[in-house]
Write a protein that binds this DNA or RNA. Sequence first.
DNA 1: CTCCCGATAT
DNA 2: ATATCAGGAG
Length: 219
Amino acid sequence: MTRAAARAQHLTQRLPDIYPDAHCELDYRTPLELLVATILSAQCTDKRVNIVTKDLFARCETAKDFAEISQEELEGIVRSTGFYRNKAKNIRAMASVLLEKYGGEVPRTLEELAALPGVGRKTANVVLGNAFGIDEGVVVDTHVTRLSNRLGLTRHTDAVKIEQDLMKLFPRTVWTVLSHWLIWHGRRRCVARKPDCANCEIYDLCPTGPKLLKAAETA
DNA sequence: CTCCCGATAT
DNA sequence: ATATCAGGAG
């Protein structure tokens, strides 16, 4: 049993009590809406995405709607999320592929999802885990990357290698909720700039905690 | 590796 | 002013 494996076991036991309501914070009603919302979430807060998708999902409901809306109109709606030209282009292209290859439905495999325009492994795992309830991988975003390193669950910065390490350390049944635990903790306590180690619920499990706490006192 | 890019907290 | 926010493509 490695140190990382021991930490993973303790985290699996304690995090559900700390974050019993951990869940996807993007607003969606269908797999397609979650797919679109997740594309929009790149380098943007969920809060901002939810403001934009409220209007967007009122304007577009089906894959056909997303494929047929003009580039200009879509850019206008999603502008405040940043990267708006790429995001608008990707959403329209992605919707066209859904119509051409999948009858307007969202596919249910990692390979098919990740092959869609603007959809990588991270977005594919979000849709599989949350919209379809399939624990096929672990979502590795900016928060999971930061927390996994601070908690000593991996030494890698590459998302695929981090995901492999997490899949070895945690049972498949918690893969989806694991990302929610880490993301919730990353947003509320273990934030990037100024982590709140003094009030951290899992400080005793964190190999980086003492270092970060000392740095905070010095500053 | 760079580029895409607005909103927000520090 | 600058780092950061549920990344992905070239």
